[in-house]
Simulated scan of single mutants.
Amino acid sequence: MLEEYLRDWRPRPVVEHDSLAPEQSSALANALETSAPVDVLPPLWHWVHFLSWPPHSELGPDGHPLAGDFLPPVPDRRRMFAGGRITITEPLRLGVPAERTTELGGVTVKQGRSGEMAFVTEHREIHQDGRLRITEEVDYAYRSGESDTKNPTRLPPTDFPASDAAWQRRFAGDPTRLFRFSALTANTHRIHYDEPYCREVEAYPGLVVHGPLLVLLMTELAREHGGISEVSYRLRRPVFSGDPVLVCGDEDGAMSVRSDQVAAEASVTFTEPR
């Protein structure tokens, strides 16, 4: 049925501009507890730029905008961040105006455990000083209405998992950090800050840690060991506030976030051979 709603959907490309002012990056650095960039943006830090803040009256019951350039026209739309790929030809420079062009990269309807899912890919290119700096594809999964499968009662993990990965970092997403990341990325989805909504409407056991935050945790760990030119990532299952997870990686660029199961994974290409 989702294919019927999407058959004639052809959104036009959208061009946006951003000054890449350093304040956003400084705020993200504080949220991640790392050093603020001085000249160039680290990989994926452009996610706190090119932000959209629609009027409050244009938000839906879940906190997401009711309409948008690349929001598919399906009824009772529910959205999830699924994965993506990025190539960094040149890093973006702070304080230098940049232009981002976004167009529809593709639409696929698949049958999942909870029913039909529409996977929408946004293709983005970011130029600065007239040169292509970043090529990016971001995948979102959408379902229509309530899921046929409710999340079962879950025993939360009580400790960090063991791993023999060469690179490791522990993380537990508390509500305050989730709130700060929502604000930094203009993400008004209620699953990240409204616990009663999470439990009663989305049937989650608690606040959901942002998928982009999990991806950033992986790339930040990798960045400590070299420059990054490409990243491919996938979100496999949600992580909830307070869950003790381990961010892992090694020299071949295989990164993951895991508790008792793998929640997210990424493949990182370094600018120089390891």
Rank of each mutant, 00 (worst) to 15 (best):
L132M: 02
R274H: 06
L20T: 05
R274A: 02
R170H: 11
H56I: 13
P22I: 02
Y197C: 03
M255F: 11
T135F: 06
H64I: 00
P54A: 12
A266G: 10
A118C: 08
V48G: 13
L59Y: 04
Q128A: 04
I126H: 06
L184Q: 13
E224N: 09
A264V: 07
G105S: 09
R237N: 03
R133N: 10
L44T: 06
M218W: 00
R234I: 04
E251K: 10
V239Q: 01
L51A: 03
I86S: 05
T185S: 09
K110V: 00
T135Y: 05
D8K: 01
S229D: 12
E116Q: 04
E23W: 14
E137V: 04
D69T: 12
L28A: 11
W53V: 13
S147Q: 10
L217Q: 12
V247S: 00
E33L: 13
V262Y: 09
H123Y: 07
L132N: 03
T153Q: 09
I126Y: 01
I228D: 02
M117K: 06
T87R: 15
V231D: 02
F50W: 08
N151G: 15
A98H: 02
E16Q: 13
G63Q: 03
V268M: 01
R85S: 04
P65E: 03
Y193P: 09
E16C: 08
R12S: 14
G95W: 07
R170N: 15
S182I: 14
H192F: 03
L2A: 04
E90T: 12
V120G: 13
A266F: 05
P161G: 15
D69H: 12
R199D: 07
L184Y: 15
T188S: 14
P238H: 07
L184M: 13
D76A: 15
G83V: 02
T185H: 15
S267D: 11
A98V: 04
Q261E: 15
V201C: 05
V231E: 00
V38P: 12
G106E: 00
G95P: 01
L155E: 15
R190S: 07
G130T: 09
A254I: 06
I191S: 02
Y5C: 05
